[in-house]
Design a binder for these strands. Structure first.
Lengths: 244, 244
DNA sequence: AGAAGTGTTCCATTATATGGAACGCAAATG
DNA sequence: CATTTGCGTTCCATATAATGGAACACTTCT
């Protein structure tokens, strides 16, 4: 199937512009794409006329509002997943463990996206699945930062045990949540499945509101104290990159 | 400044596709844009190759992931504002009052976007401003659905009076917040400025997490009981359209 | 089986997009 | 101050890239 060169060039221009949040000029674009200035100028003018890109205060070009309208029928979760993919890939590569992004969905944690471990012993891919909040590291993070309504509602229901390690006492659970809020991460050991542990950190928007949880999990024997500490540090650092 | 017709056509195609979340075919696109099928097929193939659009399970074309990556450096608030603009415009037109979208920002409410009333007596445009949570209708909605951490933190600070109507007693404020949670909206009368009242409803994401507040405000003499009820109904209906 | 519907490929045509050079303006430099 | 540098825009000759009509290939429906 043949493609249209002019449109490909426009797409390349949009991509480069999108990687410069504070803006980029015609000359730099032309240099980066090895195109004539005049060609780039006309292409950018077309994109600007349709609000695909916009002028910044410094006269550079940045992403405009039209692409936001284009994705407006895609769900926030889709948006969050696509944005998170590079971060998930990086963490999974660095740690060698499965890394996943989760959001609060009613009384469950919803697994939006998972990058799988490449090791011989793997955990299951939970993408698209929902699990109860109180037995997973991501779920506990989301519960720790949930609204009062949500927390009260969750604790008003019976808390089901999944393993002999599951914390089902609401006072103990509340103490866990307070600890998570204080240390900024959760470590959950075998509360959902024997032999599986998880670490999760909150993902904030730029106003310090928790919007998701970033989580890795794997077999318990791969998580000693040093690994946990290094992993938490990495995950906190990477969660910062999702701040928007 | 001359523009590039081929790129304009591609942009038009993206726009039409973006208005069909469940997908649209080549023939329908060609009919809507009055272009040859073969032209549209090639343009769409180019967009598909770059993940600007993607095939649905039914073989139709919908928005792809590339535009999501393009907007990934735009803040979530930008994204929310652009998405909300049509809704704000509609509410402002229907009610004749100023309509605004707000998010929680630390211990303040941040006004992201406001559509102004066209009446002779107007309220101030607060876009970009931050006001304390406890004196505004949007702020009270956001506080009502805030995390336990946030609510506790807010109430641990002195609650400042702005008018003689401001509720500064934390027990009374908590009762207001409980009422808001129960009725699903807030009505705040002259707690921030004499003569100004506001109505706000929560904006949920598709998982019933409150992410913003939709608010209108105006001079008190324009808000009788019937107006308030009609306004609340309209705003709840319109807030549903922001669900993503 | 034939009709209808979908999107793709082919090919002759031409007009549209291109790139080099000149231009206009603003900011920086000596 | 005059000159240089840097920015993006406009002009124009050219050729090739994009176009659209028609045929094609495949699937679904009657």
């Amino acid at each position: 199937m043949s493609t249209i060169r002019t449109v490909e060039r426009a797409i390349q221009i949009i991509q480069v512009i999108s990687q410069h949040p504070s803006g980029i000029g015609i000359n730099a674009l032309a240099a980066e794409l090895a195109l004539a200035k005049s060609t780039v100028s006309r292409l950018v003018a077309t994109l600007e006329q349709h609000d695909v890109v916009q002028r910044t205060e410094l006269g550079k070009y940045a992403i405009g509002n039209a692409p936001i309208q284009w994705v407006s029928q895609r769900s926030y979760s889709d948006v969050l997943s696509v944005r998170a993919l590079p971060v998930l890939q990086h963490i999974a590569a660095e740690t060698g463990e499965a890394c996943t992004l989760c959001v609060l969905d009613g009384n469950n944690v919803l697994y939006l996206q998972q990058m799988q471990s490449q090791q011989d012993i793997q955990v299951r891919d939970w993408t698209g699945a929902q699990l109860p909040l109180h037995v997973t590291s991501a779920g506990k993070v989301l519960l720790a930062y949930a609204s009062k309504t949500h927390l009260d509602d969750y604790l008003s229901n019976p808390i089901t045990a999944y393993t002999k390690h599951t914390v089902t006492d609401s006072a103990m659970l509340n103490a866990q949540l307070a600890s998570i809020r204080q240390q900024g991460y959760s470590y959950v050991s075998q509360e959902h499945a024997e032999g599986i542990v998880g670490i999760a950190v909150p993902v904030y928007n730029k106003r310090n509101i928790v919007i998701a949880a970033l989580c890795i999990y794997g077999p318990e024997f791969r998580f000693d104290k040093t690994t946990i500490e290094a992993t938490v540090a990495l995950m906190k650092e990477q969660a910062e990159k999702l701040v928007g």
